[in-house]
Amino acid sequence: MPYPGTLDVDLTGATAVVTGSTRGIGRALTELLLASGARVIGLQRGTDSLGPGHTCLSVDLADPAARADAVDAVLADHEIDILVNNAGINLRHTVEDFPRDEFSQVMSINLDAVVHLTQAFGRPMLERGHGRIVNIASMLSFFGGVKASAYAASKGAVAQFTKSVANEWAGRGVAVNAVAPGYIATELNVALREDPERNGEIIGRIPAGRWGSAEDIAGTVLFLCSGGADYVHGTVLPVDGGYLAR
């Protein structure tokens, strides 16, 4: 589908790092950043490129040493203007039976990597006095969910981390915000959308009357990366079709 609305954003000359840049929300965002003139470096498993201006480094985001090596490789050749911490996983178990290693894996990718990359790419931004960082939070930054305790814990922490960093960095030229996607139609939730009863319950709760698209999230992130968001700091912006207002 085409991107909803039109954002006249020119990011020519800017370089962005996007984690998980070739699937779902990350892919839609990467395509939009490229269309806006930015160069995009993806950090993820695999090195598939989406075309000119897009390169990928294969990295296990759960591995601190691998993350550090990737950061060093990127900063050796590039000045990073934009960081989007998009990659995330959700492993589902009841609280009492949640394997500790799987809980730690979710926290490593969803939170530890966000903190690590924000520090590593944020320092040069602070030195230059300009930069944009956007973290992908979640509806579970606001409520707890079911069988998703690790995911909820990580995304709640991402929201609070975003606010805390903004408190320190807003006056130093680096805007740090988060976007909290609602129910977004990606390959990760095909089964849910194909369940007539559950799908009906979800759409019945959404005032907009539909699932969101990856492009809905991408357009919002692009706005936060643009000059139009110069006075936006520390927000956790729901893009949920009105779900939280219900």
Rank of each mutant, 00 (worst) to 15 (best):
H78A: 15
V106Y: 00
R132N: 12
V236M: 10
I203E: 05
L29E: 00
D72E: 13
S58H: 07
V221H: 11
V190A: 15
C225E: 05
Q105F: 09
N85S: 13
D63W: 08
L91S: 12
A65F: 08
A76H: 10
N167F: 06
V106W: 05
G51C: 05
R123C: 08
H78I: 07
Y231M: 10
A218M: 03
H130S: 15
F103K: 00
A153I: 11
L224Y: 15
D10S: 15
Q119I: 06
G234A: 13
D10G: 10
S138K: 02
Y3T: 06
N110Q: 00
T6G: 09
R92N: 15
P181R: 02
V174T: 11
T47R: 14
G156S: 00
A120H: 11
P238N: 09
M139A: 14
S226G: 12
Y151Q: 01
P64E: 01
C225W: 04
M139C: 03
L43S: 01
E194R: 12
H233M: 11
H78L: 12
A76L: 11
E127R: 15
T6C: 14
I203N: 01
R23M: 10
P238F: 14
A229C: 09
A152G: 10
I202G: 02
L117P: 03
V114G: 00
K147W: 10
E79A: 15
R67V: 06
I133F: 11
G200L: 09
T55I: 07
A159G: 01
A218C: 03
D101W: 10
R172E: 13
N189L: 04
N90V: 04
